[in-house]
Design a protein around this nucleic acid. Structure first.
Length: 427
RNA sequence: GGAAAGAUGCCGGAGUGGUCGAUCGGACCGCACUCGAAAUGCGGCAAGCGGGUCACACUGCUUCCAGGGUUCGAAUCCCUGUCUUUCCGCCA
């Protein structure tokens, strides 16, 4: 959530930012927060005063007891009784206001950076880089990946339906091996770039879901194990970022660079049509995530490095790709700036999103209470958090199958994956 | 799943009703000593929400797992929950 400091000190900027993000009723919402904050402060001040008086009285009574002046102590006790109920009332009021304000703050999205283009939908996203070179010469009528996967016995969608349901494919043979090859390739690349590999739990508690912002608003997007009140993670971002919940890092520990491969689970309620065909949208999929935590002054540089890393991955795989700078209206709730990577699927004639690389500024850190201590001043400040997919497997697999398909029905293995696959062609 | 014990600051570990935000040790930081280091000595060393200040200083309140309760007063007593450890059972 946005910090109160930002809202109170740079009100105009916040309102402008929210408008850019196409958040309805920005002005009113911000004025409401400011009013709530003022009220909260007043309640706090009033409560503090009463508590101070009550603490003082307790001390005096203690002193009287010690001095053996029982009568005077008893008299003082009677006087304190009144204070007590007042305290209770003020306390309740303060807690209620704090809770209300926090809940309301959570409904206000992050504000975009200046570099974020204006716009309300995906159509307004800015293509900042385009590389549409195909890795191979394709057959006259290229097949979509679901046909290739079926012909080469790589993925069995029907079997997944039998075992679990739609959106849970079964990978087998070279299809399964391709999954493992990509996971290892991506992790090796991340390690080479200095990211520490993490293998976190794939099930998290409420506090973690809240920390990264999936809860409370996006509750319906996650699978929920009600008996234990745990959630299946929609991305490794959740458990990995939560490592740093309620943590104060030292400045010299920054930037933190973590990577993790996990299975990701998404309910994707409401999705339909050609979007969900084949591997385009699944309920369970593999993804390698990179997460960074950095100082405010260095986070932009970090973000750039992450973008270069992800670009390196798609380049090495030889896939046609483009990079989009998302416009204000299409960015996620929590990000300050976000770039999407898309690879081109020749057979489907469409771009498939394989990565989003975002800087959340302090928005996520504020909710997480992820802070760092300055080496010089010893002051504590909120960190900046960033993350990105590097990369999500299914659409990469779709693109590889489609863009590397050969006239004889086989699929050429991208050079970088050959050592991981142990073969040059999938046939 | 059954039984028992426990949860205190970065870590270890005291503290069973009043001046305890918390003894002590370690780690860490600063200073002194040293050519430098080690050793030693001295000092510092929690966070949150407020007030205050240009910024400090200074200052009120809260927090000893969480939430309730008893009391004038709770780290300390009571209740509930969570988690951890050990033993038993089960088990990849």
């Amino acid at each position: 959530m946005l910090t109160l400091k930002l809202i109170t000190e740079q009100t105009d900027r916040v309102i402008k930012g929210l408008n850019k993000k196409h958040f309805q009723g920005a002005e009113e919402a911000i004025q409401k927060v400011i009013a709530m904050d003022a009220e909260r402060r007043a309640a706090q001040a009033a409560l503090d005063q009463k508590l101070a008086a009550s603490n003082q009285a307790a001390k005096e009574i203690g002193a009287l007891m010690k001095a053996g002046k029982k009568d005077e102590a008893e008299a003082a006790k009677a006087q304190v009784a009144a204070l007590k109920s007042e305290c209770k009332e003020l306390e309740d009021k303060k807690t209620r206001m704090q809770t209300e304000m926090d809940a309301f703050l959570c409904t206000i999205p992050n504000i975009p950076y200046d570099e974020v283009p204006e716009g309300s939908s995906a159509a307004d996203n800015l293509v900042v880089k385009l590389n549409d070179k195909m890795p191979c010469e394709l057959p006259a009528n290229p097949k979509p990946h679901w046909e290739i996967a079926k012909d080469l016995n790589l993925i069995d969608f029907d079997l997944g339906v039998k075992i679990t349901g739609a959106g849970f494919p079964v990978y087998r043979g070279l299809g399964a091996r391709l999954q493992r090859a990509l996971i290892n390739f991506f992790l090796d690349q991340a390690r080479a770039a200095g990211y520490e590999e993490i293998m976190p739990p794939t099930v998290v508690n409420q506090a973690s879901g809240y920390g990264t912002g999936q809860l409370p608003d996006k509750e319906g997007q996650m699978y929920h194990c009600e008996v234990d009140d745990l959630y299946l993670i929609p991305t490794a971002e959740v458990p990995v970022t939560n490592i740093y919940r309620d943590v104060i890092l030292n400045e010299k520990e920054l930037p933190v660079k973590n990577t993790a491969y996990t299975q990701c689970f998404r309910r994707e309620a409401g999705s339909y049509g050609k979007d969900v065909r084949g591997l385009n949208r699944l309920h369970e999929f593999s993804k390698i995530e990179i997460v960074r935590i950095d100082t405010p002054e260095h986070s932009a540089e970090s973000h750039k490095e992450m973008l270069e890393h992800v670009e390196g991955l798609v380049q090495k795989l030889g896939l046609p790709y483009r990079i989009l700078r998302l416009c204000g209206g299409d960015m996620s709730f929590t990000s300050s700036v976000c770039y999407d990577f898309e690879v081109y699927s020749e057979a489907q004639k469409r771009w498939l999103e394989v990565s989003s690389v975002s800087n959340f500024d302090t928005y996520q850190a504020n909710r997480l209470h992820c802070r760092f201590r300055r080496t010089d001043s010893k002051k504590i400040e909120l960190c900046h958090t960033l993350n990105g997919s590097a990369l999500a497997l299914p659409r990469i697999v779709a693109a590889i199958l489609e863009d590397y398909q050969q006239a004889d029905g086989s699929v050429k293995v991208p050079d970088v994956l050959v050592p991981y696959m142990g073969c040059e062609y999938i046939r």
